[in-house]
Design a protein around this nucleic acid. Sequence first.
DNA 1: GTGAAAGCGCTAACAA
DNA 2: TTGTTAGCGCTTTCAC
Lengths: 339, 339
Amino acid sequence: MITREDVAKLAGVSPATVSNVINNSKFVSPDLIEKVERAIKDLNYFPNRAARALASHRTEQVGILVPSLTNPYHGSVAEGMEEVARKNGYIVSLITAEGPADRYISHIIERQMDGIFLTDFGFRFTKEQFEHMRNHGVRFVVGEGSSYAMETCSTIPCSRISVNYTRVMTELFTYLKKLGHRRVAFLSGNPTEIREARKDEYVRCIQELGFEYDKSLLIPGSSPFTTLSEDGYRDTKKFLQKKHKFSVLFALNDLMAIGAMKAIREEGLRIPDDISVVGCDNLYLSETTCPPLTTIHIPKREIGRLAMELLLEIIRGEDYRKVELFPSLVVRQSVIPLQ
Amino acid sequence: MITREDVAKLAGVSPATVSNVINNSKFVSPDLIEKVERAIKDLNYFPNRAARALASHRTEQVGILVPSLTNPYHGSVAEGMEEVARKNGYIVSLITAEGPADRYISHIIERQMDGIFLTDFGFRFTKEQFEHMRNHGVRFVVGEGSSYAMETCSTIPCSRISVNYTRVMTELFTYLKKLGHRRVAFLSGNPTEIREARKDEYVRCIQELGFEYDKSLLIPGSSPFTTLSEDGYRDTKKFLQKKHKFSVLFALNDLMAIGAMKAIREEGLRIPDDISVVGCDNLYLSETTCPPLTTIHIPKREIGRLAMELLLEIIRGEDYRKVELFPSLVVRQSVIPLQ
DNA sequence: GTGAAAGCGCTAACAA
DNA sequence: TTGTTAGCGCTTTCAC
């Protein structure tokens, strides 16, 4: 293994100078820089991150905590994060939320991660667990649904990316109302933060904009609690058998909407003639459903990029801050006027 | 920060004994073990991985190299890997293949990753790049399409997970033939290994099983080269305008099949009445398309798990080996007899 | 069985 | 501006 020492020897300088060149942490004269860089290239030298981490207490490694990568939503977020991380010499490690939280918390602490991005996750940690990680130097950025996430632990500093649904949901429901719809069912999936944020807005719109408020139209999730197309299918199937009256199905996300569409068709109903369907996320897949899905666009990759940028900021010691995003409505063909 | 020293002091033993207990690398008397474990708990001690990595030259960190996480195929693979990694104290870091290969190679080397899993990736590295990583202690497991991947660098030791399509493709084409089909188009996507493996089998089946061999039915990919639903849509759209005669469209993967279905419908053709469609991967989404997609099942999560297990084996110094998987045909409703 | 001590390759404070 | 040096927290060899 080639070390800094080897480089120093070849360049005829001290190891410290090599460090200074690599990190440009101090002024080094141009010709020494040149010599050192020459030597680095000639020897094909790569600094050892473990050693650097040990000495500096920064690992330049962050984590992304996701419920599942099977949903392309999180895949896009992860990609965005990785893009910015890579450009800044950071690496992002994957932590999926299976099993008890303490398991991955110890992972995060042992690896001395500089920070983590929690997407749709806050509920799962207690205040003590947050404090624990924080005491070990872990910084937090909390994603969509964060307003709920940190409620119980508002003393934990974190940067937040929140998605404000108020505007877009008002737009959606105004649109539905204009088309004559009054009874909108909500396919709610599992109890996570994102669900809560979207559900609250659904309830608000129903009540404020003159829809019929009927609790039986709020379709609960069922175990195992995930939010994939199979869940949308299963929950909708069960719901349809109860013969509730409704003309629009608003799904927690596109994946569930896709599953719901299958269930609706299987019951002999037509989309959108009998039931209009609306999703949320705007996965590229939602363009290709049949009919193409009317949905709410969430800038997924941007959320990932932004998360990493916020992480870099707070790691550098800058202030925590909150960024609010406003999604937009994407009108396709899965909604038509009430027949 | 709590260190091994603190634990040693509290337990009344030497730091070395603490190490021996943690790694059970040597025999330690039961009562000392007990004392040490007590102290670890009381102090809430977490061993520092960076220090351990520096001293032991093992980071217990592996990478997964993926073209994109937007395809749930790779998401599932990554999840499977992470599952096994977590259980073994390993962590998996994300490396997406954007930009020049040297960029992420230096990442891999600096981080001293113990190994990496390459999915659909071999083409992108030169023999020199492989050697380079190998010299730095990086081990390789190569995924689907590997038979092509390592062709140019057969001297690089690696474990392989290969998917043998011969049996299932014969089954598929026999099925298609029985239904009266003779002209099958192949939506091939971008030139990666997986594409080559699947394409070769397509060509073999066409020629051996009595289909009409017409090169114009081999639909090439177009730039930018990805294999998502939008690519399937775009390439199929273009293809349909040429008015070639065919009755079945076989897509490189389910995502492209979904995009193709949209293009087909937009041209006023019905699925499966006018055109039958077959996918590959068996994403959960393929159940919910309209009509449900006939496809080839690839055990994605298992591939991820297996990859991590192979990685652990070779990191432990065990022999490299090759595992072959045999996918199965999933018959749904997107294929019907030739009308 | 247990412990002492010499690194692992780097950062960062301080000297020169 | 450059170099010296003392750790960072652990593994591992070798005495005891």
